[in-house]
Simulated scan of single mutants.
Amino acid sequence: MDGYRISTDINEMDFDVIYQFISTSYWAQGIPKTTMRKAIENAFCFAIFDSDNNQIGFARLITDRATFAYLADVFIVETHRNKGLSKQLVSEIIDHPELQGLRRIMLATRDAHGLYQQFGFEAINAPEMLMQIHRPNVYKNG
């Protein structure tokens, strides 16, 4: 990761970069700024910075840091893709000392299965056990 570094210090993170990307993503398009800020403040966040200290990537975990985590909002900005940074980011998350011993880490992805499979993620064995309340238009109604 020459020239790049990963931080979990929320005070270093650039909310505008995060919001710009997430609010136009397929999974959270139109998310209100207040909702995104609250999501960041209540999660365990990771950010990647370039050599000029510009934030170029992000991921957050919704977790109790003891038994369970849900990985969300993973991204690398377009100009820094294809450099292995998403792999470095996921590796850092999986190996982080505060996340060892978790019984389950989950995520949802439309198009990055290959990335996550490299770290042991697999399709749900018994999807009939899982339930959800899914409100795909919640950001459009508020």
Rank of each mutant, 00 (worst) to 15 (best):
2 D>H: 13
82 N>T: 05
42 N>M: 05
41 E>L: 06
69 A>Q: 04
85 L>M: 08
44 F>M: 11
26 Y>C: 04
96 H>V: 04
68 F>P: 08
114 G>A: 13
126 A>D: 15
75 F>A: 02
93 I>N: 06
119 F>E: 01
95 D>K: 02
89 L>H: 04
67 T>I: 06
28 A>L: 11
123 A>S: 15
104 R>T: 10
46 F>Y: 13
5 R>T: 05
88 Q>N: 13
95 D>C: 01
72 A>H: 12
56 I>P: 03
125 N>S: 06
50 D>L: 02
42 N>L: 11
125 N>G: 09
43 A>I: 05
124 I>T: 12
125 N>K: 13
25 S>N: 13
20 Q>I: 00
44 F>P: 02
36 M>Q: 14
127 P>H: 04
42 N>V: 00
84 G>R: 08
133 I>A: 14
70 Y>Q: 07
56 I>D: 01
30 G>F: 09
66 A>H: 05
90 V>C: 10
41 E>S: 06
67 T>S: 11
101 G>V: 08
98 E>Y: 00
29 Q>P: 04
1 M>L: 13
32 P>M: 13
103 R>D: 03
58 F>C: 08
108 A>C: 15
85 L>S: 11
80 H>P: 04
41 E>C: 02
122 E>N: 10
74 V>I: 06
50 D>I: 04
43 A>H: 07
28 A>E: 09
92 E>Q: 05
86 S>M: 10
54 N>P: 08
22 I>S: 00
8 T>Q: 10
11 N>W: 03
65 R>K: 15
14 D>R: 07
99 L>P: 07
95 D>H: 04
108 A>H: 15
43 A>E: 12
114 G>Y: 00
108 A>G: 15
13 M>C: 13
35 T>R: 14
57 G>M: 01
113 H>N: 09
29 Q>H: 11
72 A>Y: 07
30 G>M: 13
4 Y>K: 09
8 T>F: 02
7 S>C: 05
80 H>T: 07
107 L>W: 14
34 T>M: 05
103 R>T: 04
100 Q>K: 12
71 L>G: 09
50 D>Y: 11
39 A>S: 15
116 Y>A: 09
114 G>L: 09
119 F>W: 01
63 T>L: 09
8 T>C: 06
16 D>W: 01
92 E>S: 01
12 E>F: 10
65 R>S: 12
70 Y>C: 12
96 H>Y: 09
14 D>M: 09
41 E>M: 07
79 T>M: 02
111 D>K: 07
130 L>V: 15
80 H>A: 08
137 N>E: 06
98 E>M: 07
125 N>L: 06
2 D>N: 14
34 T>R: 06
15 F>D: 06
61 L>P: 12
130 L>A: 15
80 H>E: 13
107 L>M: 10
101 G>P: 03
139 Y>N: 12
52 D>N: 13
79 T>R: 05
6 I>L: 08
105 I>V: 11
1 M>R: 08
97 P>M: 00
117 Q>N: 09
